[in-house]
């Protein structure tokens, strides 16, 4: 268990501001935030590489705030793996064992086998691929049986195929050893797949903590909302409420959203681009919102197409390339942009 209490630290022009967080034993906890949000600094503070200006850190109930890193009793794997280039893979793995006076050749071989690096023991780190280096770094960290594993952007330096197997490997390790994992990333998909719980950090501040569904469906703040993929934001005012459906006036258009707020409230309405459907005709359906507009821009993104539609407000829409071709979506074409009231996330 990791408990962090009002942790603050200034570093150059950057401030980590009054962070409190509790990570339960055995939890896979992901810290998600844009690049430069202070995630690595936060992790390094927990590992004891820096001292906080104020606040407390407790690991497994023991206060470690001002103890040196070797007394924090956790394993840390950097994004670039930080293997010792002058030592063979075997010597790298043995380093932690030597420091902690564990003499067990079996344990070393077993860990190497678990991480599929038995054949690499005599090689040197600089001759290994990224995926191999990562498995060596994990072996080096795990061979001493830590309770807590800190991972700094563990997947971002790997190619997509290696990423997938690395993800599986991390899940396996987490379950098998009942590890508490604290994993930081800027990648929402990664966070969503891996996490038991997620914390969002932006500009050195903790914005929201919750299970993935909460974070991705109910962001508490407009900046979190746009970071987790609610690219469309409409500002408006609630003009009526009827059986859990809000009618919101946003500039020239009116939309309906599920929710319960007083008439007259100023609100932000968020909408994911993939939750908007384009059609040529306004059909009668359960979809409450159907806005008529003109296609402004079309970008090809591989299998998907991003379409910008002006329907009194600019909406960003994501559809498949196939449907774009079938409907002849091109700049200047008139379309209906349709979305459910329940897809609209309303924040005051």
């Amino acid at each position: 268990m990791i408990e962090i209490e009002s942790l603050s630290r200034k570093w150059k022009n950057f401030t980590l501001d009054n962070l409190s967080l509790k990570v339960e034993s055995g939890e896979y906890f992901v810290i998600l935030g844009p690049t430069g949000a202070g995630k690595t600094l936060f992790l390094e503070l927990i590992a004891g590489f820096h001292s906080p200006d104020s606040g407390k850190i407790r690991i497994g109930g023991k206060e470690v705030t001002h103890l040196p890193p070797e007394k924090h009793d956790l394993a840390f794997v950097y994004q670039d793996y930080s293997l010792f280039p002058h030592m063979s893979v075997k010597k790298n793995i043995e380093f932690g064992m030597r420091m902690k006076k564990i003499r067990s050749q079996e344990k070393l071989l077993e860990t190497a086998k678990d991480l599929r690096i038995s054949h690499l023991l005599d090689r040197y780190p600089l001759t290994l691929s990224g995926g191999e280096q990562q498995r060596v770094a994990l072996a080096r960290a795990l061979v001493t049986d830590p309770k807590i594993l800190l991972l700094d952007e563990p997947l971002s330096a790997l190619d997509p195929r290696t990423q997938e197997s690395a993800r599986e490997l991390l899940s396996t390790i987490h379950k098998k050893d009942k590890l508490t994992v604290l994993h930081i990333t800027h990648d929402q998909t990664e966070a969503r797949i891996m996490a038991d719980r997620i914390a969002i950090i932006m500009d050195g501040k903790l914005m929201q903590v919750g299970i993935p569904e909460e974070i991705f469906e109910k962001p508490v703040d407009s900046r979190v909302a746009s970071f987790v993929g609610f690219e469309n934001m409409l500002n408006g005012r609630v003009i009526s409420v009827d059986r859990g459906v809000l009618r919101i006036e946003a500039g020239k258009i009116n939309i309906e959203a599920s929710g319960n707020l007083e008439v007259g409230s100023q609100v932000h309405a968020f909408l994911r681009p993939e939750n908007i459907v384009l059609s040529k005709t306004s059909t009668q359906s359960s979809i409450r919102n159907s806005l008529h507009g003109t296609v402004i821009e079309v970008w090809m993104l591989g299998a998907l197409v991003r379409v910008k539609v002006d329907c009194g407000a600019l909406l960003s829409v994501l559809i498949t390339r196939q449907s774009a071709e079938e409907m002849g979506i091109l700049p200047g074409v008139m379309v209906y942009a349709q979305f459910k009231a329940s897809s609209v996330h309303v924040l005051r």
Binding site: F49, E70, F76, Y78, F95, M99, A141, T144
Partner: peptide, 8 residues
């Protein structure tokens, strides 16, 4: 840092 978190 890596060395230190490994107990050195």
């Amino acid at each position: 840092n890596a060395a230190r978190s490994l107990g050195a």
